[in-house]
Amino acid sequence: MRVRIALAEKGLKYEYREVDLSNKSPLLLIHNGKPICESLIIVEYIDEVWKDRSPLLPSDPYQRAQARFWADFVNKEIYENGRKIWATKGTEQEVAKKEFIQDLKLLEGVLGDKPYFGGETLGFLDIALVTFYSWFLATSA
């Protein structure tokens, strides 16, 4: 989904193929005959190749590093605690729920009053996080 969102933001046409996520190929994007793997790396690649269209990462190196840091946080913390919520039971699940909510509160502080993490337009960190949106309501119950 991250790659599809990035491609849509850039207004790029692409060929979409369904894959079985439990048995997915590591080749998630093939551009000019070359495979690129892992969704956030692909999103960065798309942003670099088509940098003239709706930039996803900030131009400022510090802000770019911050976006990458928080996207890595989403990949590690949000994903792992969300996975524990639906894969465990009892005390482990309750701890994961609390940590998940704390992670979201931390990200909410980063977002502040802005409509998007990067300001006024959808960007890299938004794309990293938005694919987990369906977990938010389910984990707060």
Rank of each mutant, 00 (worst) to 15 (best):
R2M: 05
V3Y: 02
R4Q: 10
I5N: 04
E9D: 06
K10F: 03
K10C: 04
G11P: 02
K13T: 14
V19H: 09
L21F: 12
L21H: 10
S25I: 08
S25R: 09
L27M: 15
L27K: 15
L28G: 15
L29P: 05
H31K: 11
H31T: 11
N32A: 15
K34M: 15
P35F: 05
I36D: 10
C37F: 08
S39I: 03
L40W: 00
I41P: 00
I41E: 08
I42Y: 05
I42D: 09
V43F: 04
V43D: 10
I46H: 11
D47R: 06
E48W: 04
V49F: 09
R53E: 10
R53C: 02
R53W: 00
R53D: 06
P55M: 09
L56F: 07
L56R: 11
L56S: 14
L56V: 08
L56Y: 09
D60R: 07
Y62M: 15
Q63H: 02
R64E: 04
Q66H: 02
R68M: 07
R68N: 06
W70L: 13
F73D: 13
V74W: 01
N75G: 11
K76T: 13
K76Q: 13
I78M: 06
Y79T: 08
E80Q: 11
N81Y: 08
N81H: 13
N81P: 00
G82I: 06
I85V: 15
I85W: 09
I85K: 13
W86D: 13
W86L: 14
A87P: 00
T88K: 13
T88A: 12
T88P: 01
T91Q: 12
T91D: 14
T91R: 12
E92L: 07
E92K: 07
E92H: 03
E94D: 13
E94C: 02
A96F: 01
A96S: 06
K97A: 10
K98Q: 14
K98A: 14
K98R: 10
E99K: 12
E99M: 07
F100Q: 10
F100E: 12
F100S: 06
F100T: 04
I101H: 08
I101A: 13
Q102W: 00
Q102P: 00
L104H: 02
K105N: 10
E108K: 10
G109S: 13
G109T: 11
D113I: 06
D113Q: 15
F117N: 05
F117S: 10
G119M: 04
E120C: 05
L122Q: 10
F124T: 02
F124P: 03
L125P: 03
L125Y: 01
I127N: 08
A128Q: 06
A128C: 06
A128M: 03
L129R: 00
L129T: 04
L129G: 04
T131E: 07
F132P: 01
Y133L: 05
S134K: 11
S134I: 02
S134N: 09
W135T: 11
W135A: 12
L137P: 02
L137G: 09
L137K: 11
A138H: 07
S140G: 05
A141Y: 03
A141F: 04
